[in-house]
């Protein structure tokens, strides 16, 4: 579950939902400066979803999303109780939001 914690406390599962606007761009998810996941995102028009990447994070860890081909990067502001991070690409720029409930796709 996205809000599960480990025995040490402070370890949370966060889902990164790459949603609209992706046409095959590659991204890296950096946690505390280290590469944690690589994602190639291509939006599927039927569902408005490209990819869901779950990542386990500790409290306070800095998360950065970096677009590989451009080098552009954005810091992700994580909110307690909002473990669903949605990312959309609008006119070449990443739009990032955090939700408390899992986004639904149809």
């Amino acid at each position: 579950m996205p809000d599960e914690e480990d025995d040490d406390g402070g370890l949370h599962r966060v889902e990164f939902h790459f949603q609209e606007g992706f046409t095959g761009q590659s991204f890296e998810i950096l946690v505390a400066g280290k590469l944690r996941a690589s994602v190639t995102a291509r939006t599927r028009f039927q569902t408005g979803l490209a990819h869901i990447e779950p990542v386990m994070l500790r409290d306070g860890e800095e998360v950065i999303i970096r677009q590989k081909d451009t080098g552009a990067q954005r810091k992700v502001h994580l909110h307690p109780g909002r473990p669903f991070v949605t990312l959309t690409l609008v006119n070449g720029a990443l739009k990032i939001d955090a939700l408390d409930q899992t986004p639904g796709y149809l």
Partner: peptide
């Protein structure tokens, strides 16, 4: 995909 996909 799990519960997040209601239909496709």
């Amino acid at each position: 995909q799990g519960q997040s996909l209601g239909g496709v």
